[in-house]
Deep mutational scan, measured.
Amino acid sequence: MATKAVCVLKGDGPVQGIINFEQKESNGPVKVWGSIKGLTEGLHGFHVHEFGDNTAGCTSAGPHFNPLSRKHGGPKDEERHVGDLGNVTADKDGVADVSIEDSVISLSGDHCIIGRTLVVHEKADDLGKGGNEESTKTGNAGSRLACGVIGIAQ
């Protein structure tokens, strides 16, 4: 089992970053940390998408990683996509320092995120509470600013 993974985020604009993942036990939580720069100040949706395909930019990554066919939600919700990591918060300089621990994603097994795409979005994720159909699919997080395929790390 891989215990570490990394993702280099890039987009068409100024947004870029490096996100690290570490899972010490196969059924334990995954620590997610790193930094994203070039964002507007505020909240930005942060999700693992189904495919590791960036051939047409971030759009070819498909929908959120959702092997259990659930509705979109927040990272602490029972009803959520596996890939729903909530929001990252950018400061006035456009930098989001990421520090998350998640017990639904994994670096092995059915919820493995390796080979899938991590995406940072234009807007805040409403965590499935926006009151419309799009909220239950995407959290109304808007366009995909930057993305990268999650790969095994040393």
Rank of each mutant, 00 (worst) to 15 (best):
G17T: 05
S60I: 12
G45W: 03
K123W: 06
V120Y: 01
K31I: 12
K4F: 11
F21T: 01
V88E: 00
R80P: 04
G115P: 00
I19F: 02
S135T: 07
G74C: 02
R70H: 13
L107M: 04
T55P: 05
A96E: 03
P67A: 06
G130L: 08
T136A: 09
T40E: 09
V98T: 00
K24E: 11
T59L: 13
T3P: 04
I105Y: 01
H72L: 10
V120D: 01
D84K: 05
G57S: 06
S143L: 15
Q23A: 05
A61Y: 15
G13V: 08
V119T: 09
C112E: 03
S143A: 12
Q16F: 15
D84E: 09
I150E: 00
D91F: 05
G130H: 09
G151R: 14
S106Y: 01
D84G: 05
V30Q: 02
F51N: 05
V30Y: 02
E78K: 05
N20V: 05
V104C: 13
H111P: 07
A61P: 14
G83L: 11
G148H: 00
L68S: 01
T3C: 14
F46W: 07
L85P: 01
G109T: 02
E50D: 08
V82T: 08
A2V: 11
V30M: 00
S108G: 13
G142H: 05
G11I: 01
E25K: 15
D110T: 08
N87T: 12
C7F: 11
G13M: 03
K4D: 06
V120S: 01
A5W: 00
P75R: 11
C147D: 05
V48D: 00
D102C: 12
H72Q: 10
V88C: 07
R70D: 03
S69N: 01
D84M: 08
V82F: 11
G128W: 03
G57V: 10
P67V: 13
V104D: 08
S35D: 09
W33Y: 12
E22Q: 07
H72K: 05
R144Y: 06
G94H: 04
P75D: 07
S99E: 15
S108N: 08
A5T: 02
K24G: 10
